[in-house]
Design a protein around this nucleic acid. Sequence first.
DNA 1: ATGAAAGCGCTAACAG
DNA 2: CTGTTAGCGCTTTCAT
Lengths: 371, 371
Amino acid sequence: MATMQDVARLAQVSVSTVSYVLTGARPISQATRDKVLAAMAELDYQPNAMARGLASRRSRILGLLLPMDERGLGATETAFVTGAAAAASVAGYHLVLSPIGVGDLDELRRLASQRMLDGALLMEVQLHDPRVDVLRELGLPLVLIGRTADTTDLSYVDIDFDQTVEEAVGHLVALGHRRIVYVNHSAGTIAEGYGPATRTRDAFTIAMTGHGLEPLMIPAEDSAAGGRTALATALRQAPDLTAIIAMNENAVFGLLGELGGRGLSVPDDVSVVSMVTSPQVAELATPALTAMNSPGSALGRIAIETLLRHVDNANGEIHQQLLPCALQVRGSSGPPRTGSNTAGNTGADGDEPTVPSTEAARRRAATRRRA
Amino acid sequence: MATMQDVARLAQVSVSTVSYVLTGARPISQATRDKVLAAMAELDYQPNAMARGLASRRSRILGLLLPMDERGLGATETAFVTGAAAAASVAGYHLVLSPIGVGDLDELRRLASQRMLDGALLMEVQLHDPRVDVLRELGLPLVLIGRTADTTDLSYVDIDFDQTVEEAVGHLVALGHRRIVYVNHSAGTIAEGYGPATRTRDAFTIAMTGHGLEPLMIPAEDSAAGGRTALATALRQAPDLTAIIAMNENAVFGLLGELGGRGLSVPDDVSVVSMVTSPQVAELATPALTAMNSPGSALGRIAIETLLRHVDNANGEIHQQLLPCALQVRGSSGPPRTGSNTAGNTGADGDEPTVPSTEAARRRAATRRRA
DNA sequence: ATGAAAGCGCTAACAG
DNA sequence: CTGTTAGCGCTTTCAT
């Protein structure tokens, strides 16, 4: 394993010169640089990460603090992780995933105090997240994925729930739906103030009211069973519902199962739009779910870029950014059976000029099936 | 940030003494140890990871080389990761997840040459995995999750596919099924020699033949659409099939959707058993899937323990271990409609003494729904 | 534009 | 059982 000494000797320069061509921290003549580079290549030199870290007080490691509950990473989170890892790699950093939740504060304190991390990304942020306090106290740069109650002086990236909900509602209203039910996370989760749940709740209320419609909402446990129960409740409270927007990625499957069990067809009897869902999960359902695709990968990239800016610049600009989920129409949404088009659905080809997106979705679904 | 010097001064001992109480590499009198420990606590001392790594030539970081394809981590992989991270943490190590696939050999070489890793776990191992060569060349301890074609001198942990398939088949045969179709990964994947696909194929052949039955197999693309196609093919080739074993976690959802679409009920018309599936995913389906639960967490723990043994003991024992998936009966499997019990299904309570597991499953499912 | 040298904070001989 | 000390391989002043 060649060291910098070896390179310096072979290139006939001092070690500091080698170091400087590596870090670019001071100008080096082209001739010298070439000599050094040649020597490095010759020796297959790779700088020792530990030595570099010790001397520079920079590990070039970023932490991704990710509470892995029993349920594990959904495709959405995975996209985020992948995007973040790629962005870190491009910048010459490594990304350590640490399954550290709000419970493991000591573990977090240890990790951060060991000076092993140059900065951290916090996922699954809670309204009052003690991890934030710990990290700030230790002076570790951090970026939130999500938002705490008070975001003063805190950089974050998050999903733009307002816009996402608005688009989901808009899609269904444009199709002709009037009775739309929103299936949220559980009542407990909402009461806790879980951001995605409360923000979408408020956004749904505003969006529906804006369309002159009643904002019907049902909570659901995060499970298939929760979805089944929620559907039953929804049908009791609004027997005439024609569409459902589901925030709860787990519940939505139970919900679909229960719809099928009751002989209700999707999307003819009930349209379903799933929120913050990855394409992979959306495609698992039959029919594939019209969904608001989470911008996981982009969020990850932006989060890392923001974090690195803080690392390089101890007191850099605070950066707070929201990204909306993009509507992707698939087979689970269509015009209501009894809507503006009272003629009824005689077939998949009943052209409905005002809703071209549904048509497009059908065609896409058909294509997929052939593939 | 207190250093070892500070601790030594406060405790009135030498730095080496402090170091030794930390590493336990040599006996320290109880009195001295207490003094040192007190000083550490007093100063809130945490060893500097970089300095320790440089001096000891040990980063205390293990790499988990995990190709994150577009599909992301399933719950199975997540359980593995969580199990591994926990085991590493217990041993005082950190686990770095690096999304390094067989393509990023340079990235891998860089990571390993920087001496940032003490060892590596390889996931998604291919039959001829170049990553193995790179790591061996660099002398980095490694443990495979899965198996290469030649496993000489290589430690690995993997799923015991033979036993898993045998149990799945046994479960269905015990219920009275005779026409069982195995839905595998795609033909291309099988042709490539992908271990899980070829091993289960062979195991299925043996298991079915052992029961005097014909081993019917259908390949399926890794998607819901693939599952739909596969079901169509299966019904064409074996119109009298009563049960399906699905290796393909993605296809199984399309398969279920298509069954529903054709008016076939699960499990009354067709029983479905999903292979190597996590409980979380199994519960998404309606009815919940009888599945072979992958021992993800245990695999992760054992892999780390094995790896650490290699790290501590450069040329330690090779450890090769297989773990079977455990059968978990849920709602998607039951006796065939036309089977040994020709009386027909008059209800869920038609006691079938030879198949108590199905009864248990029904009761469990009912309980779950109430929860 | 380059070199010399002083550490970074810890471990692990080597001495008692 | 404890102390002394020489590095680990690199970065970064301070010189020139």
